[in-house]
Structures are given as C-alpha cells and as structure tokens.
C-alpha cells in the first residue's frame, strides 16, 4: 500500500507545472523516504531530478518500494482539477496498474477521485556524477526568470559569466545584444539577495529554449541556485517548499 497526502494541493500543482513542458512521462520511485523522479527530456539534452521527502507530507505510507511510470500530461490534467486549498491524496496498491488521486475540499462534503493508468516504462538507469562547481550563485528566482524571458528575445543562447564581483547574463543576435549584470549583495539569506561562491570564474552559454522550461519552477521558491563549472552541465535548483527540491541539468553549448 502506498498513500501520500498533502493538505494543500498547490505545491503538487506547481511541481507538475515545473516539469510538464520538459517531460512527457517519468518513473516515480516511491520508497519509505519519499518520492523521487530522475528523467531526461526526449531529446536527452536535459535531466530533471526531483525529490519529495516523506516527512514533508501530512501523511505518508509506503509498505513496498514502487516504481510507477506516469504520463506527466495526464497527471497534470488531473491536478488541474484540484483547487489550491484541496487536500490531495495519492494512493496505490502494492503491485499497481493504476494510481488514484483524491481531492477533498475543506468545509465541503465533496470528494473527487481520479484514477490514472500507469505506463510500462523502459528503465533508464541514470546517475548524477559528483561534481565540484567553480561557481555557485543564489539569486531571486523571479529575477532569474525575468532575465531568461527578456534575453530570449535577442538570441537563441544566453551566456552566463560569473566572477567574484557578480554574474552577467548576455544574449546576442541579428537584432542586437542584451546584457544584464547583477552584483553580489551585502546581505545573504534574504529572499532578494544575490550571493556568489566562486573558486574560478566561468563563462558558459546555454540554450534559451531549455532555460525557459526551467523557469516554470519559479513559483516554487524565492531563490534559485545556479551551479556552474566548465565542461559540465549547469545545475539550476529550486526548493519545493520545505519538502524537497527540483534540479535541472543542462549541458553548455559548445562551439562547432
């Protein structure tokens, strides 16, 4: 028996919004410690690693480890049927063909129940290599989203250059160039602070198309963490409230 309940479906709705444009289907690994998804997009250009800890749920029970292949599009459709204040319960038997989603509206005697067929998925065994990053930047997630949206108008790629002084985003195309520089702030730990931990300066270019997928996670938290090193994928990390995180990996563009 697997059962996981959140009193506010809002967080799960936001998680689905953060992955639905990147993943068509994914295996949800459910264990005693929580729910984990590690999946690549169809083009194998990016990887999404998501974790929801069992202690973050209002109720969590997982008697046997389960690997459930789910259609992200269908799951997203189902979660759109919940209002943000609904309690959501996910439930499955030990050898499931389906997963059940139940929505309870507080103060109302209404329960909605949706059953979704699981998918048999080819298991891609994916692992994330341990990496020491040259630069780790924490900045307001809304600021990052705005920069990605703004600069995407001017080119296919965004170049991120990070030094001790600050982080510079730039794009260039036929119509002109765009540059946005952020300096490190005096305060750290505030929602609007910019902090940079740097071993070595980096300058790397990334696809706007994918960065625009990643910023769909912006409503999940106030700060985003960018980890950069030469020749390894960028990590773009958002906390999922107090209960987990979502990390996106993307290889830098290389000169032909």
């Amino acid at each position: 028996m697997f059962e996981a309940r959140l009193t506010q479906s809002a967080i799960l709705k936001k998680v689905l919004d953060a992955i639905k444009d990147l993943l068509t289907e994914a295996t949800f690994e459910c264990t005693d410690s929580g729910i984990q998804v590690q999946a690549m997009d169809n083009a194998h250009v990016s990887l999404v690693s998501m974790n929801l800890r069992s202690d973050g749920f209002d109720k969590y029970r997982c008697d046997r480890n389960l690997s459930m292949g789910m259609s992200i599009a269908v799951m997203s459709k189902i979660l759109k049927c919940a209002t943000t204040n609904d309690t959501v319960t996910m439930r499955a038997v030990d050898n499931p063909d389906t997963i059940e989603f139940m929505f309870d509206t507080p103060g109302k005697d209404v329960q909605a129940q949706y059953e979704m067929k699981l998918i048999n998925m080819d298991q891609e065994h994916l692992g994330i290599p341990e990496t020491v990053y040259s630069c780790v930047v924490k900045m307001p997630s809304q600021e990052f989203a705005r920069i990605v949206r703004d600069l995407s108008q001017f080119g296919e790629n965004i170049t991120i250059a990070c030094t001790k002084e600050g982080i510079k985003f730039s794009a260039a195309g036929d119509t002109g160039t765009a540059n946005v520089k952020l300096a490190q702030t005096a305060d750290s730990g505030e929602s609007d602070s910019v902090t940079i931990e740097m071993q070595e300066s980096v300058k790397l270019s990334f696809s706007c198309r994918y960065l625009n997928f990643f910023i769909k996670a912006t409503p999940l938290c106030e700060q985003v963490q960018l980890s950069l090193s030469n020749d390894v994928p960028l990590v773009c990390e958002f906390n999922i409230g107090e209960i987990g995180h979502i990390k996106y990996y993307l290889a830098p563009k290389i000169e032909d």
Binding site: H44, V45, L47, A251, K253
Partner: peptide
C-alpha cells in the same frame, strides 16, 4: 555556430 550536447552518456549508469 554552437551545438547542444546530448547528455545521455553523461548520466547513464552502465
């Protein structure tokens, strides 16, 4: 021009 690397080999566990 710039090209995008496929990451499957980077993340795949054999």
């Amino acid at each position: 021009g710039k090209s995008q690397k496929n990451l499957l080999q980077y993340f795949k566990i054999n």
